[in-house]
Design a protein around this nucleic acid. Structure first.
Lengths: 115, 115
DNA sequence: TGTAAATATGACTATATAATCATATATCAG
DNA sequence: CTGATATATGATTATATAGTCATATTTACA
């Protein structure tokens, strides 16, 4: 019960919710992508990602200097279902739609600078 | 997005989670029932219920001195789905099973004292 | 009207969370 | 090894949350 509550608490912040929805839509994102989309300082983004990692929502994959975050594949069954529910409703969340759009724009010009 | 985050935050406390799962199983509960099941002081229970009410998770029905809490019927679609997901997993949450059992025990002897 | 019972709330304390600056760490290129 | 870049973290401040005692409010009923 405490574990489930902590899991929900990790989602109960608007920024982390946006991050999770972006990860769900995109698959893998690094910190600098999120800084661009969320328009937040690097340390703020990094701390939210650390919170999500502590709460078992995300895993990381290191590639050189870049660290890519992705939704954890082995999260508990209830988390997977919660994610699916969020996904079904993401299209009705204006901020989520806008975030996905601005991420797409950002990624389109990114390959010149980053892998 | 902020509204959804606040909605999730209301569920992200172990005690409120237990309350919501009890309401889902039982339908209507009053504060004194919850005091018995959760073994917490009246003010603590009352504050958690107020939090759930502020977050649109529960409605109340007054019957004399007793105030019965129930899950809000008109909560948003995503909340309804979240509840269904929780319900499907409640049987796997030992605390939830125990709470429902102790509530049943408490209610069995309650009619003598309360309506 | 006055009392008792159920619930709500003010006031306080302790703890957790969130934002942010400055700094540290890790990795790669040269 | 050195510098540059991406990310993490220490320290600080502001705010939110949670628990709890004491007290207020609401309702029923004698």
């Amino acid at each position: 019960m405490n574990h489930l509550a902590q899991t929900l608490k990790a989602l109960s912040d608007p920024i982390r919710l946006r991050i999770v929805l972006l990860l769900q839509a995109e698959g893998e994102i690094c910190v600098c992508d999120l800084m661009a989309v969320l328009q937040l300082p690097q340390s703020t983004v990094s701390r939210h990602l650390a919170y999500l990692k502590r709460s078992c929502w995300v895993d990381i994959r290191r590639q050189g200097v870049w660290i890519y975050y992705q939704l954890s594949a082995e999260s508990c069954a209830i988390c997977q279902e919660l994610l699916l529910t969020l996904k079904r409703h993401a299209a009705a969340l204006p901020e989520s739609v806008a975030d996905r759009k601005s991420l797409a724009v950002f990624l389109k010009d990114k390959p010149a600078a980053c892998p």
